[in-house]
């Protein structure tokens, strides 16, 4: 059996879950095993079962434990550990989100098993190997996972979701038997932050600035451009470290991963740790005064020039174009 842990937030799931299920279903077919899923979140999550069937899940467990509605990683790991004990699956997997990685780390630590995070491919067989992301995705690693069951998380945005309905389908309750101490760490509440403009994660256009922007003031023209294109502004680590932008705007290995239609990178050299954050962009336009900047080798469009001249001129041209 292959068990996929389903991350739901108040009954909603992200694409990452369907990606993980798609990897799980392929693995189940290769290993000739049934695909099962655990929904241990809020009771509203039970509304997801029809969709799980569409993705090839033939058995779903619901816990219906109200206490699991607020995130409690140890309690979730406890449920998974019990399920492993009862059902003896060959593989347990989750999407490589913050929660997915955290949960499987707890599970691996509790059961003293190996865990391969951020896998892009899985090769079952006597020698169970995986391909996983390293260096934030700029390198791939082939690794062997020795312990049983195999624990892994599925890298985001690598394998597209692909539904394939299950022939049979069965929903069961799983009694989690959780204790007070399983909730030693639990989210107490969520503080909402004021939301302004388009978020980096959702923007169709992102205008990014790096050291070449020079200072916080310099980002004004990038903001104007982003606004005209209905986009968001981001930056390199140099821009956030210097306080020109808040850290939440950082794109890259230790910042945000973006996937817009177009990323316009201004005054950014193209260090690998930055580039891995915008790999998902459909198109990249690089504006840099140095024709040798490494970013040009990873872009679709390039302009050699001083961004302090090019951006204001571009803003002007777009305004003229629109007749304002």
């Amino acid at each position: 059996m292959i068990v996929v842990w389903i991350e739901d937030q108040g009954g909603k799931v992200t694409d990452a879950v369907w990606e993980a299920l798609t990897m799980g279903r392929r693995l189940a077919q290769q290993m000739d095993q049934p695909l099962a899923a655990l929904l241990a979140g809020a009771p509203e999550a039970s509304g997801l079962t029809d969709q799980l069937k569409e993705y090839g899940v033939s058995r779903v467990w619901l816990t219906g434990d109200e206490r699991l509605a607020r995130w409690a990683p140890q309690a979730q790991a406890r449920v998974l550990a019990r399920l492993i004990e009862q059902e003896r699956p060959q593989v347990v997997l989750a999407a490589a989100t913050d929660r997915g990685n955290e949960l499987l780390a707890y599970l691996a630590a509790r059961l003293q098993l190996g865990l391969a995070t951020n896998c892009t491919e899985v090769h079952p067989g006597d020698d169970f190997t995986v391909t996983r992301l390293r260096w934030g995705g700029s390198l791939l690693e082939e690794a062997r996972l020795l312990s049983e069951p195999k624990l892994l998380t599925v890298a985001l945005h690598v394998n597209a979701p692909e539904p394939q309905p299950a022939e049979s389908f069965q929903i069961e309750q799983f009694v989690a038997q959780l204790e007070e101490r399983d909730f030693i760490i639990q989210m107490s509440k969520m503080e909402e932050s004021a939301h302004e403009g388009v978020s980096l994660a959702e923007a169709k256009v992102v205008v990014g600035g790096g050291r070449g922007v020079g200072n916080a003031e310099g980002f004004k023209s990038l903001e104007e451009l982003a606004q005209l294109l209905g986009g968001a502004v981001g930056g390199s680590r140099v821009a956030t470290n210097n306080g020109w932008r808040p850290h939440a705007d950082q794109i890259g290995q230790t910042g945000a991963q973006i996937a817009p239609e177009l990323y316009i990178a201004c005054g950014i050299s193209g260090a690998i740790q930055h580039v891995v954050g915008c790999k998902g962009a459909k198109n990249i336009l690089v504006i840099n005064k140095d024709p040798e900047a490494p970013f040009f080798a990873r872009a679709d469009y390039g302009v050699v020039g001083d961004l302090r001249e090019v951006i204001p001129a571009l803003v002007e041209a777009i305004r003229r174009e629109r007749g304002d």
Partner: peptide, 26 residues
């Protein structure tokens, strides 16, 4: 329990770059 077998570079996704010109002339 997790044994590295080797590293490799991922396929480079992008094709040829199209240069749009220099400075404001672009």
């Amino acid at each position: 329990q997790l044994v590295k077998l080797g590293l490799k570079k991922p396929p480079e996704g992008r094709g040829q770059i199209q240069m749009l010109g220099e400075g404001t002339a672009a």
